[in-house]
Nucleic acid binder design. Structure first.
Length: 198
DNA sequence: AGTGCGATTGACT
DNA sequence: GTCAATCGCACTA
């Protein structure tokens, strides 16, 4: 499990820091997990961020201390998993965009109703569906063991650092030019157009 | 109360 | 490559 004190207290640094960490979901079906291979930062003052116009019922979790889950429904279709990223009362977050599946792959395949490993958790809505994430886990503390938390892979070593690329964020009409997306170069579980993944 | 549109996806050409 | 699905905000009146 990650201690809150080790999370960089800055949204953009946290987005970079979370690459390579592991999202763990515990359900009655068993443990589901995947390594984070793609994130996006939505820092303070970002017009594309949900916290930009202040706290509302929906965005409450973005204003919790860093390391809490903010989960919302996009386009009425897909759930999005974010990690709150600043001090309590300050609204900002990191969107988790893709996972490399680790544990519980058969259950994820059932949750997604597909077999193809590459498409299981490649994209924010897909990863939420694979891990059975929805509003039930909104506001959960990801720095405590529970239904949803973030871990460091047991196999990680300091010299095992992935090659992380930076690009513009995906699907935005505002603040579209800012380089706030982070991804593992060459990883087949990263989403987005080829041009953004060099 | 009505409107516009979004941090997406899957089906289809 | 195009496009509809589907829902809940945020905003206007």
């Amino acid at each position: 499990m990650l201690a809150r004190s080790e999370l960089p207290p800055d949204t953009t640094e946290l987005a970079r820091y979370l690459i390579g960490k592991v999202v763990v979901r515990t359900t009655p079906e068993g443990v589901l997990s995947g390594r984070i291979v793609e994130t996006e930062a939505y820092p303070v003052g970002d017009a594309a961020g949900h916290a930009y116009r202040g706290e509302t019922a929906r965005t409450h979790a973005l204003f919790l201390d860093r390391g809490h889950a903010y989960v919302y429904l996009a386009y009425g279709v897909s759930w999005m998993l974010n990690v709150s990223s600043e001090a309590a009362g300050v609204g900002a977050g990191v969107l988790i965009r893709a996972l490399s599946p680790l544990e519980g792959i058969a259950t994820m395949q059932r949750n997604r109703r597909i077999q193809n490993l590459r498409d299981l958790a490649r994209g924010p809505g897909r990863l939420a569906a694979a891990l059975d994430i929805d509003r039930r886990v909104d506001g959960i503390d990801l720095c405590r063991r529970g239904p949803l938390w973030i871990a460091r892979d047991a196999g990680d070593t300091p010299d095992d650092t992935p090659d992380v690329g930076t690009s513009t964020r995906i699907g935005l009409s505002q603040e579209a030019q800012r380089l706030l997306r982070f991804y593992v170069r060459g990883d087949r579980f990263v989403s987005g157009p080829k041009a953004l993944n060099r």
